[in-house]
Design a protein around this nucleic acid. Sequence first.
DNA 1: GGGAACTTGGCAAACGTTTGCCTAAACTGT
DNA 2: ACAGTTTAGGCAAACGTTTGCCAAGTTCCC
Lengths: 336, 336
Amino acid sequence: MTKQRWLGKEPVSLATVAAQAGVSIATVSRIVNGETRRASPETVERVQKLISTLGYRPNHVGRTLRRRESRIVAMLSPNLDNPAMAGIAASVETALRSAGYVMILCDTHDRADLQDEYLHAMRSQVVQGYVVVNAVQSDGLSAAVARGDPIVFVGRRNPDGGGSFVGIDNWRAGIDAADHLWSRGFRELAVTYPLQGSSATRDRVGGFIARLEQLGLTRNAVRQAGASGLSHLEVGYAAAKSLVDGRPWPQALFCPSDLMAYGAYRLASEHQVQVPKECSIIGVDDNTLNAWIAPWLTSVRIPYGDFGDRVVEQLQVLWAGEPGSEQLLPHELIVR
Amino acid sequence: MTKQRWLGKEPVSLATVAAQAGVSIATVSRIVNGETRRASPETVERVQKLISTLGYRPNHVGRTLRRRESRIVAMLSPNLDNPAMAGIAASVETALRSAGYVMILCDTHDRADLQDEYLHAMRSQVVQGYVVVNAVQSDGLSAAVARGDPIVFVGRRNPDGGGSFVGIDNWRAGIDAADHLWSRGFRELAVTYPLQGSSATRDRVGGFIARLEQLGLTRNAVRQAGASGLSHLEVGYAAAKSLVDGRPWPQALFCPSDLMAYGAYRLASEHQVQVPKECSIIGVDDNTLNAWIAPWLTSVRIPYGDFGDRVVEQLQVLWAGEPGSEQLLPHELIVR
DNA sequence: GGGAACTTGGCAAACGTTTGCCTAAACTGT
DNA sequence: ACAGTTTAGGCAAACGTTTGCCAAGTTCCC
């Protein structure tokens, strides 16, 4: 009794409308779905009036069971606290909505077990597709891919390879960062990275170093330091610490994410090192807040706001039974 | 054919398992739900083995239709891009998950029409409850409240009054900010606010001004400026601009949100005004990033990470048929 | 040995939709 | 007038579960 009060006092269904209108459920269903040719104009009008006065709304659960499509898409994201992830979530949500879908959001905390748990749970919910941001390797994911479930990978590629992907050319982003610093005349360079890095951060760092070698720096001339930790903020701080431990700060430091750059910045502040005067820091993401409170940071802007549309495009491709593709969006170096 | 490939090649249902096991659907259903006393130990084992080898997972849609509970909760939030909102979303998601629910996330962009559209859509999805962050007044919302739908309001109270609420004592937060600045000896004070402000920001500003009057400042001694705009970042910038237009900067400035404080900070930077040396800025929220890149900002910390548990508590109260209550969480002034 | 109680499990009705098929009645053309 | 077509709408099966009720068979107690 009290348990189902959430349904409203009057769970008005097709049957309710049909009874009031004196027609069959089938007829009401057809009218609801716009198939007006199967009923006389008077019937249609009578039923439509009743629908609006009774406030009838099709029950999606019944519809899903019958039609076998839920219009629900699951998004699995690691830590939503990361502004970049939140940006992706917002963008995808908006794009899905305008395509008539709703999004179930799952925070995997970057853990393989939680990712699997969610993948299972979402399958139970009969979701129509998955958007997996920064996927980690896991059995459940491999199984879903093998099953042919429609999955769009965002940020990181499918750990098992293949499939739909939306992101940027991370290697190229690293190259662009290197070119920028080089053209400014910096030669004492350093890079920090997360130890349990994903393909995305690895590529950024890889591109950065490879480019510098191409430009004439020896591999050892580029100082490198990794660290591990929960958040990129802490990773950036710790990595920077081990980088400058007892040594002078480099002229410029490349961090494969803005959060890591923030971590490095904190250490620089503690060391009274001025950014960017004494040490330039360059990150990746270009968080919205940078323009307001971190103008000292140069960053490779990733157009997260454009991800949503591409993700939905890819989902539609997969739903059509065609193979997905890689969508690389343009990034842009922002200097303030 | 291709259309339903997402279901997997073998949509294994109770019927599948039952057929293989040579028992009825009912028996399998009972075993799945742990009602083992209704079958012989051998049957139970045989069925359970089959369940795991076939990879059977209960279909939530069928279950929802029958049981009339979807274990889905809808969260309506304005702009997820705001780190505070993202923090709430993350916290609520985690709390819901550990209570066995999943969350559908809807970004209302602070628009009444979108809020209504989502409320309708979620009702169709037969969600079991709603978490509405910074609700705006709308017909659909009033209707949902009147219907007795379980709704927990977060951040802003129910515009129509009453109901469950999770948030902080905003008036008190304003008071605390005033006390802090006063105790530091500042007497030339100012405050900015959004023109189309919510009850939350109004209360913060109201408490701030009321306290200063109590302390002996006349109302006119507190400089005030409002502005409107899409984002609090821009509002903060514009309000600060109109505040200092041709006049000296105050000793301290209260902004009812961190984002507004960031906006004011940008203007201060453009005016070569040092923060906090020449002008102290105090915000509300205490964004995680403050410790890393905005140590100049004093802020009233809102424990967003604790919101999730309280929200779920309130939902459970509502589901039990009891009236919800107001949950005011403790805030804390953070000075760096 | 006979009723009571328990064990094991099946039947079938719901939950709200959608949709292929059927059927009358009305209309059309010749 | 009669066959053929169109119109208007109902029937019932399915989608995957859950669960109240019923029915045999077994055990137990006196």
